[in-house]
Simulated assay, not measured.
Amino acid sequence: MFTFDDIRAIAVQIEHNGETAYRKAADRVDDPRLAELFRWMAEEEQRHGRYFAGIKGVELPVAGAEAAQRMGRDLLQEMVKEQTFSLDLDDLAAAVDVAAVLRQSLTFEEDTILFYQFLGDLIEDAAVKEQLTAIIAEERRHVTLLDGMLDDGGA
């Protein structure tokens, strides 16, 4: 059976992937403004991960459990492993172009939003759904910031 605990573990891993990658990006860039942005985003991801790790006692509704089961534990785990759902730390560390780092980060944030929207469709607990909505809004702000930086030429 596919449980909310399985989904929660994946969400925690996604946030950990983002935190780690943003901290590496902060160490790689020469521009202090970008470094500060990446450190801030790492802190955001860390906070999101702590939130997901702290959710206890949530059960998926029957329809949600069936949908999650159809999707399959293996599929979700593969999504997290794929580059489109985690920042590739080697590529990020090797990036010499700030725009490339920003594009990778943007893809990660967009994929994270899609996953959390999927979660939102499965969860009935009002408090968890409200917090998830707030996290999605924060991830959208990350997308807006990254888009703006790319529009400014990557700096």
Rank of each mutant, 00 (worst) to 15 (best):
1 M>W: 06
1 M>K: 13
4 F>R: 10
4 F>E: 07
8 R>F: 04
8 R>N: 10
11 A>I: 03
13 Q>G: 12
13 Q>S: 13
16 H>Y: 02
19 E>Q: 06
20 T>S: 03
21 A>N: 14
28 R>Q: 10
28 R>S: 10
28 R>W: 02
31 D>T: 04
31 D>L: 07
34 L>R: 05
34 L>H: 05
38 F>W: 11
39 R>V: 07
40 W>G: 09
41 M>H: 01
42 A>Y: 02
44 E>F: 01
45 E>M: 09
51 Y>N: 02
51 Y>A: 10
52 F>M: 08
58 V>C: 13
60 L>C: 02
62 V>C: 02
62 V>H: 05
63 A>V: 08
65 A>I: 13
66 E>L: 15
67 A>Q: 12
68 A>R: 08
68 A>Y: 12
70 R>K: 04
70 R>Y: 02
73 R>Q: 13
77 Q>V: 02
78 E>M: 15
79 M>D: 09
85 F>A: 15
86 S>V: 03
88 D>H: 08
88 D>Y: 05
89 L>P: 02
90 D>K: 13
91 D>A: 14
92 L>Y: 08
95 A>V: 09
98 V>D: 14
98 V>C: 09
99 A>R: 11
100 A>I: 09
101 V>I: 08
107 T>D: 07
107 T>G: 10
109 E>V: 09
110 E>P: 00
116 Y>I: 11
119 L>M: 14
121 D>W: 08
129 K>R: 15
131 Q>I: 12
138 E>V: 06
139 E>L: 12
141 R>F: 12
141 R>S: 11
142 H>L: 09
142 H>S: 09
144 T>Y: 11
147 D>T: 11
148 G>S: 04
148 G>M: 00
149 M>P: 05
149 M>G: 08
152 D>M: 14
153 G>R: 01
154 G>T: 14
